[in-house]
Amino acid sequence: MTAVQTTAATRDALGPTLVRLQQSGAVDLVVVDADLGKSTTSRKFKDVYPERFFTFGVAEQNMISAAGGFASLGYTVFASSFAVFVEHAFDQLRMSIAQPRLNVKVVASHGGVSTGEDGASAQSIEDIALFSSLPTFKVGVPADVVEAEAMIEAAAKDSGPWYIRTGRPKIPVLYTDGPRYQIGKADTLREGGDLTIVACGLLVERALRAADALAAEGVSARVLNMATIRPLDVDALEAAARETGAIVVAEEHLVHTGLGAMVAQALATRHPVPMEFVGIPDRYGESGTWDQVLEIMGLTSQGVADAARKVMARKRR
């Protein structure tokens, strides 16, 4: 599968998907918001179901605990804001949702440094670590808008807490033939025998381009889209390690606490192989266009390809 011209932001999936789900009658939705419904697109749900949409103002702690209250009555609750602002309510996520295992889906937009111009304060680079640290939460990062829609639907129909990170930039649509998303299953986008690139979010498309570059050098890279971070598809990772003997993990998140760290922990007990990591180094972001900031952080197809060359050199030693 290769990237095509169409682009869209993963955040655009939220509002329309919620409307469709409520219309389907499959779920009994409540949507809560903290004054960013236009940006997260959840306000599109309000346009159709105003009585099921509740705004809490700029008060994320109250919104998250109230979401737990709604869910305790049996509603499926979607809470959204920017990723950095739901982080503001971490203890509420822990006490009002995670511990009682309530049916709240946090869909946060503007994840990662690709939020761009707003700078470090608006760029969530620690959200995957925070949500992955909460037992009972499932965590997902869709690779394109098609997968985002499928993931939101899967989360709505699954019981228990979820965190889904969506993004602001318009990125290439990968799943032009429709979604293949399954909870907790890696999707093999490209077969390969020399190494495996494990990626999530907008790094998936960059990993595919890196695999193209590597192919020109005679290196065959498998590409796994690890859209579900928790639960992690450890079986797919073990198979990749056994069959290709080297792993690169690429993500738009702090490199020491994200998908890469979790993949490394899983493989350390299953089948350790040489690994390299592409992620945000131990620093905060800055202003710039979204692709400029990604470049500053080394989150490019070139960066992924370089990591692949490095891991191949270690594998050959």
Partner: peptide, 24 residues
């Protein structure tokens, strides 16, 4: 009816419950 121990969350949780009751 709720998990607690960190203070300050119960009124929010109860508010969500009451709004959900009203919706029904």
């Amino acid at each position: 009816e709720n998990s607690a121990g960190s203070l300050g969350m119960g009124l929010s949780f109860g508010l969500g419950i009451r709004l959900g009751m009203r919706l029904r």
